[in-house]
């Protein structure tokens, strides 16, 4: 009994300073607001995408559930929130709850089947779920508007106070606050027993079973949580653009979200943010400069990251310090 004082290492802190990461995030969001006042719609889209990629990070990065169908929950959240706004009320916050529930319910029901599969089978099944949703939305024209999209969404002011304006100022801050709150909650989760047990599932399901964890039920829980968050992202998209099209279920969306996550680094929340911001910015700039070959640049970037920074861009500072200090 010599050293009883143990200072627990606070993971998730940058350079040991509490809330430095959060402060930087807020500063960046503020800076972007003033630097690009005419691009707020694009910035809002980035924020929504960050939320979708965060949900994917929870499912794939933490719990290790291989999926290419996160759009299923995103799209369902979008349609649910859109229909809710059309038929019930245009108040944004109840719409978010509806979107979250819709995403979570779909993830739970499909998860009951999906979480029994692994690897390639699982990936194919997740794609299938998104395709089925796409087809249902396409056929149910009377409800969803089919290929024409769901129109007639009229949003009321947020909390009855902040009217959605033409330039998108309200939308920007509204989306940011929602994404930021979810981010903070996820950060709690990542450092809590649940976060640790999800990492355990990722590392070794056999060992998790051998220490008495209900593996299947824990996986369904993770998938459902991720589905709820993806549902919120979809709901935000529906409310802000006031339109839901079949594109919300597209395979492209799931795949791009995955690329953004890999770019930033799986299994770390800041990775999801960094990857999304960089991917979407490069996409935006490169597509404007060269509408035909912009994908080449994205491909090059992904290749570079996969080869030189397999843990993602969020790992860059660590990798650089290691390079400077010499290999350990």
């Amino acid at each position: 009994m010599t050293d009883t004082t143990i200072t627990p290492k606070r993971t998730g802190r940058i350079a040991g300073i509490p809330f430095l990461g959060e402060a930087i995030l807020i500063a960046l969001v503020l800076a972007a607001y003033f630097l690009f006042p005419y691009n707020l719609a694009f910035l809002t889209r980035i924020l929504i995408m960050v939320l979708l990629v965060l949900s994917l990070d929870l499912v794939l990065g933490f719990a290790g559930i291989a999926t290419l169908g996160q759009a299923a929950m995103y799209g369902t959240g979008a349609y649910a929130a859109g229909l809710f706004a059309v038929h019930v009320t245009g108040a944004p916050l109840p719409g978010l709850v509806v979107g979250a529930l819709a995403g979570a319910v779909l993830a739970f029901i499909s998860g009951l089947v999906l979480m029994r599969a692994r690897g390639l089978t699982l990936i194919m099944l997740t794609i299938a779920v998104a395709s089925i949703c796409h087809e249902i939305a396409n056929k149910a024209r009377d409800v969803t508007g089919g290929a024409d999209g769901l129109r007639g969404i009229r949003m009321e002011p947020v909390l009855g106070l902040f009217e959605f304006d033409f330039i998108g100022k309200t939308a920007y801050w509204y989306v940011f606050v929602v994404v930021f709150v979810v981010f903070l909650l996820l950060k709690r989760l990542a450092n809590a027993p649940l976060g640790l047990s999800l990492k355990g599932l990722h590392e070794s399901p056999e060992r998790m079973a051998a220490i008495g964890a209900p593996v299947y039920r824990r996986l369904v829980l993770a998938y459902t949580l991720g589905g709820g968050i993806a549902g919120v992202a979809g709901a935000l998209a529906a409310q802000v653009t006031q339109l839901v099209s079949l594109e919300v279920y597209s395979f492209n969306l799931s795949a791009e979200a995955l690329i953004m996550l890999i770019l930033g680094g799986t299994g770390r929340l800041y990775g999801a943010i960094i990857g999304t911001v960089i991917f979407m910015t490069v996409h935006h700039v490169a597509a404007a400069a060269d509408p035909f070959n912009w994908l080449f640049l994205i491909g090059l970037m992904v290749l570079g990251v996969v080869f030189f920074l397999p843990k993602g861009l969020a790992h860059l500072p660590t990798a650089l310090t290691r390079l400077v200090r010499g290999r350990t």
Binding site: A192, P193, G195, L196, M208, I211, G212, A213
Partner: peptide
């Protein structure tokens, strides 16, 4: 991880592990 499963708090999500 083994301990938190034994004690049945593997799903606690707000307090630090």
């Amino acid at each position: 991880l083994a301990q938190q499963e034994r004690d049945g708090r593997g799903r606690a999500w707000f307090r630090r592990a």
